[in-house]
């Protein structure tokens, strides 16, 4: 098991130590920008939707996922190419995100976060008077 590098390991375990005795992986992410939103797509296989935490603190968005451990009863692991573990990754967001409008969905172990861009404040016109 130790001689197998998997995609998660290749994408890097984070330096932070978990209190649980499991590896913490940095989930692979796609990030794209549409006309009115920033979309983050993160791969977190083997995490129940209920075990995902997304927090936004100031401009830092942190995604945490607690992986389950799959051990079929009565079976012993004979060959391993991946490991179960947790996922953690943080992103610094651009300023103009509407924090209240963030929506998260999970499907087939992939978390999608839709971060709507906030509407720009209407420009103020300052009238200049001749004195």
């Amino acid at each position: 098991m130790t001689d197998s590098v998997n995609r998660k390991a290749a994408s890097g375990e984070t330096g932070a130590e978990s209190t649980r005795n499991v590896p913490v992986f940095r989930p692979a992410a796609d990030i794209y920008e549409t006309k009115d939103a920033l979309v983050l797509v993160l791969e977190m296989p083997n995490v129940d939707p209920g075990d995902i935490d997304v927090t936004l603190d100031k401009r830092v968005l942190t995604v945490l996922g607690r992986g389950k451990s799959i051990v079929p009863e009565g079976y012993a692991l004979s060959q391993a190419e991946y490991r179960d573990g947790d996922y953690e990754r943080s992103f610094t967001l651009p300023e103009a995100i509407d924090a209240d409008g963030i929506a998260a969905t999970v499907k087939d172990g992939v978390l999608s976060l839709n971060l709507p861009k906030s509407k720009p404040a209407p420009a103020k016109t300052i009238s200049v008077k001749t004195g």
């Binding site: 296989p45 799959i70 079976y75 012993a76 692991l77 004979s78 060959q79 172990g109």
Partner: peptide, 19 residues
């Protein structure tokens, strides 16, 4: 990536296929 499990009843293959 796959993990392979062996037991008296046979073999179980698990694979991570996110998305």
């Amino acid at each position: 990536p796959m993990n392979l499990w062996r037991g008296p009843e046979g073999v179980i293959v698990t694979a991570e296929v996110p998305g």
